[in-house]
């Protein structure tokens, strides 16, 4: 199986390649990608150099251009596709219909993957993108169980890639406006979710409070620091219930499911975390590479001790287990 690893910086990309990543995904330093964070991502020159570094070591580079272009400013996204091809990228990861159509027409030889942001959650959706835009691989949304992924792979001809580790969206990706409702900035339009410039931490009485756009997302007793106020991981009240209405402060760890995902016909395993450090990336990549190598050699994969690398120190297998729903 192919291991697809995140890189927010050229240094992280080199660390991932050196740690054994088969494939690295990254983006340009602007709102054309869904991890548009300050200090992150690649210039055109950096991407060209990074592709050279990866290719020389047998690794591929995928460029995520997976936000939805703004009306009147599509040229920024169009030039990102052209620049990715010029830099020698092995594929672009796209979500927007219009941008897929543009890339298929103007860059037919540049391989197209469908981003998780397109949330193609059934064989009809995947076959639609494959037929209309010759998409070769689909990153599956995190709403599907392993059984459903198996069934999907029986009905499609394109490759599938699934998330196995890192941050976890509980909503169908690319179809969530919670962040813009609270802050005016969203993953789809701006490549950010619950953005830091709208975050406010305060100490009030005995509590530490984390707010997003003025809405209280966490309130923890003094001594415990309030976690980062990612909207869907917040603690809220509904009627007589108070708690994590949408999702607990957990992140995804499907490392134990890798053999089943391989049986389900999955081609590639994706690790989330372009915002994470190069040391983190290297550690996760090495751990997962041991798993894929074992599978390729038909050995039992090692159990991974990744718990301390998970956000919030707690992990879930998310929608891969049907009971999560």
């Amino acid at each position: 199986m192919e291991l697809v690893c995140p890189a927010g910086t050229p240094a992280a990309l080199r660390a991932a390649v050196d740690a054994g990543a088969h494939c690295i995904y990254c983006g340009f330093a602007d709102e054309t990608n869904a991890r548009n964070f300050p200090g992150l991502n690649f210039s055109r020159t950096e991407l060209t150099e990074a592709v050279g570094y990866a290719h020389a070591r047998g690794a591929k580079v995928l460029v995520a251009i997976n936000t939805f272009p703004t009306a009147g400013r599509e040229a920024l996204w169009h030039s990102a596709v052209a620049d990715a091809e010029r830099a020698g990228a092995d594929a672009v990861i796209l979500a927007d219909l219009g941008l897929l159509a543009y890339a298929a027409e103007h860059h037919p030889d540049l391989r197209r993957h469908l981003s998780v942001q397109a949330a193609a959650a059934n064989p009809d959706a995947i076959n639609f993108y494959a037929t209309a835009f010759d998409v070769r691989r689909v990153v599956l949304p995190r709403v599907l169980s392993v059984e459903e992924i198996t069934a999907i792979n029986r009905e499609i001809d394109v490759e599938t890639e699934v998330f196995v580790f890192g941050g976890l969206c509980v909503m169908a990706e690319g179809r969530c406006s919670l962040s813009s409702y609270a802050t005016g900035r969203s993953p789809n339009m701006n490549g950010v979710c619950s953005p830091p410039e709208h975050v406010d931490y305060a100490t009030e009485g005995n509590d530490s409070v984390a707010r997003l756009g003025g809405f209280t997302i966490h309130r923890t007793p003094k001594g415990g620091a309030a976690p980062y106020p990612t909207l869907c991981k917040g603690c809220f009240t509904s009627g007589d219930k108070t708690g994590h209405v949408f999702e607990d402060a957990v992140s995804l760890d499907a490392s134990a499911l890798v053999p089943r995902l391989a049986q389900a016909g999955v081609t590639a395993l994706k690790i989330e975390g372009r915002q994470r450090s190069k040391a983190y990336v290297a550690q996760i990549v090495r751990a997962f590479r041991a798993v894929t190598d074992a599978l390729d050699a038909r050995r039992a994969p090692p159990a991974l001790a990744l718990a301390r690398l998970s956000e919030g120190q707690a992990a879930t297998t998310g929608a891969y287990a049907k009971t999560w729903r």
């Binding site: 272009p69 703004t70 599509e74 927007d96 219009g98 397109a118 959650a121 009809d124 959706a125």
Partner: peptide, 27 residues
């Protein structure tokens, strides 16, 4: 949900609801 388009043959008119991402001219 865009997968509905898979079932609508070319030439049959349809409507698009607010849960489909229409953000720009190209789309």
């Amino acid at each position: 949900d865009l997968s509905a388009l898979h079932h609508i043959p070319e030439g049959i008119p349809f409507w698009v609801g607010p849960l489909v991402n229409v953000y720009n001219e190209g789309t």
